[in-house]
């Protein structure tokens, strides 16, 4: 109720400012809002009304000075700055380069959203790779799904390239990186950002009447491995499969381009 009144008064402010830039309605509004500064209310002369107005917002309550920002450019820019600060408290803003650098440090690269026309989900090929994401290493082949710690800056249905490949293998061949293979890549799709099952953290000190219980749910990302590149894939013996392999080639080019 209190902030409804505040907003209402702010609205009055704004309308008064927009419609007629005269001092009488302004002073009325100020009396309504009851700013704790008598100097300002007395000094709203016609030529210099703009300057004390910009002071006013420092004394006004938070809610009203947020809704005031439609009135003046100065104020609106101030308000924006504040909101940015508030946002950065929760999660700081990253530029695209920073995002890419952080993702590269973890070991992935975001390609973009999966389109309906993309045929990335293929049948199993007898090839595996050891890939590192963050501080975890996974032995994957295509069609596998892995749960990693939550990856930042990627949405569900994004395509990723995991580029920290430590080892590639097929039934006949093994390629070992020192420590990574720079020209190998594992392609994956983000399937889910989910929370793990709840873990109860229970602390107790005996004979001290001290017990603390805290719940925790870890954020995880589920990835589906779609393709492993950098090793030649063996021909599959069944007759339907070579056709698939032939189809796969242009796709790969499309993915790299």
């Amino acid at each position: 109720m209190a902030h409804r009144r505040c907003l209402h008064s702010a609205l009055l402010h704004a309308t008064a400012l927009i419609s007629l830039k005269k001092s009488p309605p302004l002073s009325i509004v100020k009396a309504l809002t009851s700013k704790p500064n008598p100097v300002i209310t007395t000094s709203n002369l016609e030529p210099s009304w703009f300057i004390p107005w910009s002071y006013v917002r420092h004394f006004s309550s938070r809610k009203s000075d947020d809704s005031e920002n439609e009135a003046e450019m100065e104020e609106s820019s101030d308000g924006e700055g504040e909101s940015d600060e508030m946002a950065s408290d929760m999660a700081r803003d990253y530029s695209p380069e920073e995002k890419e650098a952080e993702a590269a440090a973890i070991g992935y690269k975001v390609v973009g959203p999966l389109q309906r026309s993309d045929r990335v989900f293929k049948d199993y090929e007898p090839v595996f790779a050891v890939v590192q994401i963050g501080s975890h290493q996974f032995k994957v082949s295509n069609g596998d799904s892995i749960f990693t710690e939550r990856l930042k800056f990627c949405e569900v249905n994004d395509k990723l390239i995991l580029n920290k490949v430590l080892l590639l293998g097929s039934p006949t061949q093994t390629i070992i990186g020192r420590p990574i293979l720079p020209d190998a890549a594992v392609h994956a799709v983000v399937e889910e950002h989910a929370l793990d099952a709840k873990v109860i953290i229970f602390k107790k000190k005996r004979r001290k009447n001290y017990r603390r219980t805290k719940g925790h749910r870890q954020e995880l990302t589920k990835l589906r491995i779609t393709d492993i590149q950098g090793i030649e894939k063996p021909e599959i013996k069944t007759d339907g499969k070579p056709l698939k392999a032939a189809v796969k080639k242009p796709e790969k080019i499309a993915a790299t381009a």
Binding site: Y124, P126, V127, F128, H136, F138, K139, V140, S141, G143, D144, S145, I146, F147, T148, G169, S170, P171, T174, E191, E192, A194, L195, D196, A197, K198, L220, K222
Partner: peptide, 20 residues
């Protein structure tokens, strides 16, 4: 995905555990 929340036994789910 709407699956039931259970404690994960493994973080790596595969149908083909071994290639070689």
């Amino acid at each position: 995905l709407g699956r039931k929340v259970v404690k994960l036994k493994t973080r790596h789910v595969t149908k083909h555990p071994s290639v070689q």
